[in-house]
């Protein structure tokens, strides 16, 4: 029961947060002046007319980091249940060694990426 209450409150809070955003926008709409001009609505580019468009295919230099990140982020999700139950699971030594192996494999992966010079920005 308390479970539903807790997440019910959370849901309500989310709704209230959303409502706050809407109310603030409405309040702003009521109070703000409205004098649209073409120049006002142009994209800011240091006072010049924009060259080309803002949505260009840019070179994101850290995409290899992003791959690594996904791997490690999933790992950390596995880590949390283990971390909570560490004291309750028996035999403790075995549980610890299992996790050391798990983290070890990932650490070796990181080391490999390091040696492969993935941890440098692509120039």
């Amino acid at each position: 029961m308390s479970y539903y209450w807790q997440y019910g409150t959370l849901g309500a809070l989310t709704a209230v947060g959303g409502a706050f955003v809407v109310i603030a926008f409405l309040g702003n709409r009521l109070m703000r002046p409205r004098k649209p001009r073409v120049e006002k609505a142009t994209t800011y580019e240091c006072g010049m007319d924009p060259v080309g468009e803002g949505w260009s295919n840019t070179h994101i230099r850290y995409y290899l980091f992003a791959f690594l990140f996904v791997i490690f982020d999933v790992e950390s999700v596995f880590l949390f249940p283990w971390a909570v139950q560490l004291e309750k699971l028996r035999p403790q030594g075995t549980v610890l060694v299992e996790m050391i192996v798990f983290i070890g494999i990932l650490a070796i992966g990181l080391l490999y990426a390091w040696k492969k010079k993935v941890l440098e920005w692509v120039k």
Partner: peptide, 8 residues
């Protein structure tokens, strides 16, 4: 909240 809201 009184400022004009500009959308490019």
């Amino acid at each position: 909240i009184q400022k004009e809201d500009i959308t490019p």
